[in-house]
């Protein structure tokens, strides 16, 4: 572990509230330890801004271990920054160089209005899940966990899809602002498991319809979502959703 310090120039999108017209502001940061995470670097900036009496940069974050999906911004054009399969909170400053200029923008999509600075409203993703991203079982009265064997490989495939953290980077990176990877992952997870079978068709129909209603764009198979996904979720899940949706529509 070699600790060094770097100086950075940040261009950050500042927007007072959802109605305000935002713009970029430039900040200089000196002596940033390369052991810091990206969000800790923003913390340092905010402490500095607070001491100067200016408004700190609002940004969403919570677990800071790459699993809650709350953080996220676009760094120099790439959602969650340059490291593959890494959320912003797990991105460390050692991946940047002395004198770098970092342009920090909020996740952008018609379906993600901006609340303030880098904080966006991703509730559209919740509404897609509410449309059908579940198995309709009430609490209690469920059969023994081992009553339906599931091949290990199937459980793993389902788990691949289920590891989605709902951060919205797929939407932010998609040139069309589409939420296909997010929706496809949930549809895949449940369509692969026996528990998901009874509602398989209704789920695919309802979730795709909800996704369209929220104002997400169409998928043109650009694969940007897969490339930025912090959990490495494959677009194979989108292919699976395509099949599921066609089956549900026609049969």
């Amino acid at each position: 572990m070699s600790t060094t310090s770097i100086n950075l120039s940040l261009e950050i999108w500042r927007q007072k509230d959802s109605k305000a017209k935002g713009d970029f502001e430039t900040y200089k940061l000196t002596n940033i330890s390369t052991d810091m995470s990206f969000l800790e670097m923003l913390d340092v900036l905010n402490e500095q801004l607070t001491r100067e009496g200016s408004d700190p940069v609002a940004f969403d974050h919570d677990c800071r271990e790459g699993i809650c999906g709350m953080c996220g911004a676009v760094i120099n054009g790439i959602a969650h920054g340059p490291e593959p399969e890494t959320t912003l909170c797990q991105l460390h400053m050692r991946h940047f160089n002395e004198g770098d200029t970092l342009v920090i923008e909020p996740f952008r999509s018609r379906a993600f209005p901006i609340h303030k600075d880098l904080v966006t409203d991703r509730s559209a993703l919740d509404r897609i899940i509410q449309a059908g991203g579940y198995v309709s079982v009430n609490t209690g009265g469920t059969p023994d966990g081992n009553s339906t064997p599931i091949p290990s490989a199937t459980a793993e495939l389902s788990m691949d899809a289920a590891s989605c953290i709902g951060c919205g980077a797929c939407v932010a990176s998609c040139p069309n602002g589409a939420a296909m990877l997010f929706t496809g992952a949930k549809i895949s997870q449940l369509s692969l498991l026996p528990q998901g079978q009874p509602e398989r068709k209704e789920r695919a129909m309802a979730m795709v319809t909800a996704m369209d209603k929220e104002g997400f764009g169409n998928c043109t198979n650009e694969r940007e979502c897969e490339a930025v996904c912090p959990k490495g979720i494959s677009i194979r899940n989108i292919a699976r959703m395509n099949r599921e949706f066609v089956k549900a529509s026609f049969f």
Partner: peptide, 23 residues
């Protein structure tokens, strides 16, 4: 024990043995 049954029924992809039972 009920928790495990409940979560399996919800589609939680717990790790499985090759025979398909819960690991």
């Amino acid at each position: 024990n009920n928790i495990i049954d409940q979560c399996v029924a919800q589609g939680v992809p717990f790790a499985r043995e090759y025979g398909g039972t819960l690991a």
